[in-house]
Amino acid sequence: MPSPAIEIEGLTKFYGDVRGVEDLDLTVPRGKLFGFLGPNGAGKSTAIRLILGFLNPSAGTARVLGAPIDDKAAFLDVRQHVGHIPSDPQFYDEVTGRKTLDYFASLSGDERREELLERFSVPLDRPVRAYSRGNRQKLAIVQAFMHDPKLVVMDEPTSGLDPLVQQEFYEFLSQERDRGVSVFFSTHILSEVRQVCDRVAIIREGRLVAVEDIDDLLDRSGKVVTFSSPDEISLADFAFDETIDARIEPDGSLRLVISGNYDALVDALENYRVEDLEVRETAIEDVFMHFYDAGPEGEARQDNEGETETQQETVTDGEPATDTGVSPDAGPTNGEVRDPTDDKAGGRK
């Protein structure tokens, strides 16, 4: 049995009094696409930097491909098999892409460079200073995978990629996973998790709140019903056994999450004139909301009882384009974490 790709035990990092992450326990199995989801500032980057040995933990430890991060010699050897894409990767401005890759190749090899460059092409002979954000990101992908690592750790790897390249990258990740490569990546974009990951860990405020298989998460989801009527809608009419969540929106419409059959709903609707009615698949945002509402994690539950300001910590993407599976590009506002209970902010109908 090979050791897991990453094992984290009680990992804690404080910057002075400021919590980076606290008491993180997590096992990332080999050969999986593992998502690490959380809003900005939740501690994702801190956790990744700890795992890769860039930061010294305040407490706890981690093992990467079996090598403890505090065993310098073992950890040094194992890094031959690790690839990394930092958040907002920075190279050497005056150096061309080709020479940058030559440099990294001299340190850890580049068996797959050409193949990767065919897939993620960049203007190799221009200095990196002239690269767009997307090209820099592609260069980062090539350098992370070109020495054929067994584990790749990425910090928000798709930011800056245009939607087409993003799709290509997702596909590439799946193929890598099928080759047995373990991938651990942080994101705050739920659609990405849904589309790409086998399993996801959710972090908020520096603590791990859940680790779930994506399929399990989605199985819990139910359907979302939106209903508007010229009549005043009473929530009490819609409190069925099947109801997971029901609320009246600010515009007077009803938003209902139900699982199971629709019989009770259809009966209830008889009492109303119907202006608009929509039944759709649950977006992953709704699943997470559901998860935070009803999930087994006491802490999440507790937090969700708070006021809006704590709810805003809840992970959600909220971009309307998520149903297409393509997260809309890429500007600084992309995938902003929003309050899942605030549908105006989420832009959903």
């Binding site: 890769l52 040995g53 050897d77 890094r79 031959q80 990394h84 930092p86 990767p89 340190l107 850890s108």
Partner: peptide, 10 residues
């Protein structure tokens, strides 16, 4: 931050 790209290597 380019140090990370080097120091992640062996």
């Amino acid at each position: 931050n380019s140090a990370e790209l080097v120091l992640v290597r062996p």
